Computed example of a mutant assay.
Amino acid sequence: MSIIMSQQNLVRRQIPPSHAQQKIFKGIRLNDDDKLLNAMTVAVTTSLSSMVGLGARNIVLLKFYDSALPFLTRQQCMAILARFQSGVEDAMALMDDQALPAEFHATVLKETNECIARLRMIIEG
């Protein structure tokens, strides 16, 4: 069973506004310049805070991954590879029900394939 995926598996969907964005922009008309500007500022600030948190988490996980991987045996990498592929398949099945941009799917594909390649390098020696 191989999880390596291609661009053919990616689906582009329109992303509906989040519940927070719906609350922020509710009742604002385009000619309400100050209200619209304030609502947009709140939305951008909220999105930026989320992105900063994800970036920080990504750095920590990458450093852990890079630190731990060299110490794994071939057998450990084989077990991790099987479990990783199964976990990614489960996550992708859940993502099928969500409206996510193609860039998200492309990044999942790229990162998954890079992890699999690094594990296979250790397995194959």
Rank of each mutant, 00 (worst) to 15 (best):
G55W: 08
C77K: 02
L36Q: 07
A93S: 05
P70Q: 07
L100Q: 08
M78C: 01
H19W: 11
F25H: 11
G55D: 04
R120P: 02
N9T: 15
A79W: 03
S6Q: 09
K26Q: 13
L94Q: 11
L94V: 09
Q14D: 10
E124Y: 10
R120L: 08
R12Y: 05
A99E: 07
V42L: 11
G125K: 15
N31H: 11
R57M: 11
V11G: 04
N9S: 10
D33F: 13
D34L: 07
M5W: 14
K23V: 14
C77I: 05
F71V: 00
A102F: 03
F71H: 09
A20T: 10
I28A: 00
S2D: 00
P101A: 04
E111W: 07
M95D: 06
C77S: 00
T45K: 10
I15N: 04
R12D: 10
Q7D: 11
F64Y: 06
S6N: 15
G55T: 12
S18V: 09
I28E: 02
Q75D: 15
L119V: 04
M1W: 04
T46M: 07
L94M: 11
T41H: 07
Q75R: 12
P101N: 12
L10V: 15
T112S: 15
L109M: 15
S67H: 11
L37W: 01
R83Q: 11
Q8F: 12
S86F: 01
I123S: 02
M121Q: 00
E124W: 03
E124T: 09
R83L: 02
G125I: 06
R74H: 01
A106C: 09
L61A: 10
S47W: 07
T73S: 14
A43L: 00
S6I: 02
D96S: 14
L62T: 13
L81V: 02
G55P: 04
M5T: 14
M78R: 05
D66K: 12
F71R: 05
I122F: 03
T73P: 01
M121D: 12
V42R: 12
E111M: 07
D34G: 02
A68C: 13
Q98I: 12
Q85T: 09
S67E: 14
Q76E: 13
F71Y: 08
A20C: 09
I3N: 03
A93R: 11
A68T: 14
C115K: 11
C115D: 03
E114H: 08
L69Y: 03
L62S: 08
L37I: 15
Q98G: 01
M95Y: 14
K23P: 00
M92I: 08
R57C: 13
G55S: 13
D66A: 14
N58W: 13
A102S: 05
G27M: 08
F25L: 06
L81K: 02
A91Y: 07
D34M: 01
V52M: 06
M78A: 06
S49G: 08
S67K: 03
M95V: 05
P17C: 00
L62N: 12
N58Y: 13
A93V: 12
K110P: 01
L10Y: 11
L10E: 15
K35N: 15
L30H: 13
L61P: 00
N113K: 06
L81M: 03
F25Q: 06
I24C: 10
L81F: 03
M78H: 02
V44Y: 10
L10H: 14
